[in-house]
């Protein structure tokens, strides 16, 4: 797993639960307190261990933890901006998820995001299939979809199905769009200097 993923978990723990929790988790998982280098690769088993220890320490279910991680990530300004490249409104954004894997590949070849496929199921109803290893990406994206709904000011119902017909690695997120323009949402301007506030 690319260190960027592990580093995200590290930052989530530090920013949300405090340094002490991160140190405790790092210590138990056998990771040095400095944590991970985003651009180096680490064994997948280390990520699994990190997540296990974090959930045990915080007494959380893995999928709940991952969903909060997804929300955390999409509220970081640099990530939020990249996600807002998806389009003008929430439906555009949902459709753009089809391209997310390809686009991230352009930027970071080593970051293996899951394959995302959006299907329309009739008026305002969609399902996003998430296929990738290890399991749990679906939960992360459920968090991302929730946070981005707030960002766009859309009112949605989001439900994660942990098991789908796409096999063991497949998860699906049911999205029901109740109101695209429920609230005003946050602003996004293409020209706002990217990377100015990393």
């Amino acid at each position: 797993m690319l260190g960027l993923v592990n580093r995200s978990i590290q930052n989530f723990l530090t920013d949300t639960f405090g340094e002490r929790i991160w140190y405790a988790v790092a210590c138990k998982a056998g990771v040095s307190p400095e944590g991970f280098e985003p651009m180096l690769s680490y064994e997948d088993a280390l990520t699994d261990r990190l997540l296990d220890v974090a959930c045990e320490t915080l007494d959380r279910r893995l999928f709940d933890f991952l969903e909060d991680l997804g929300t955390y990530l999409s509220t970081r300004e640099p990530v939020r901006r990249l996600l807002r490249y998806g389009g003008r409104d929430y439906v555009d954004f949902l459709r753009s998820l089809n391209e997310l894997q390809g686009r991230t590949q352009l930027a970071l070849e080593d970051l293996k995001l899951p394959e995302l496929t959006l299907r329309g199921l009739g008026v305002g109803r969609y399902t996003l299939s998430v296929i990738g290893a290890p399991p749990g990406w679906g939960a992360v994206f459920a968090g991302v979809l929730r946070a981005m709904a707030d960002d766009y000011g859309a009112l949605v119902l989001i439900e994660l199905n942990e098991h789908t017909e796409d096999g063991p690695a497949g998860e699906a997120i049911a999205v029901q769009l109740l109101d695209s323009f429920h609230a005003s949402g946050r602003s996004f301007d293409l020209s706002d200097a990217a990377g100015a506030e990393m």
Binding site: E37, M39, L40, A107, L108, E109
Partner: peptide, 17 residues
Amino acid sequence: AKSLVMQELRALTQRLD
């Protein structure tokens, strides 16, 4: 160009690490 820069940065990270 980005791939080249990334390669260099990755090597640098490895050295620093």
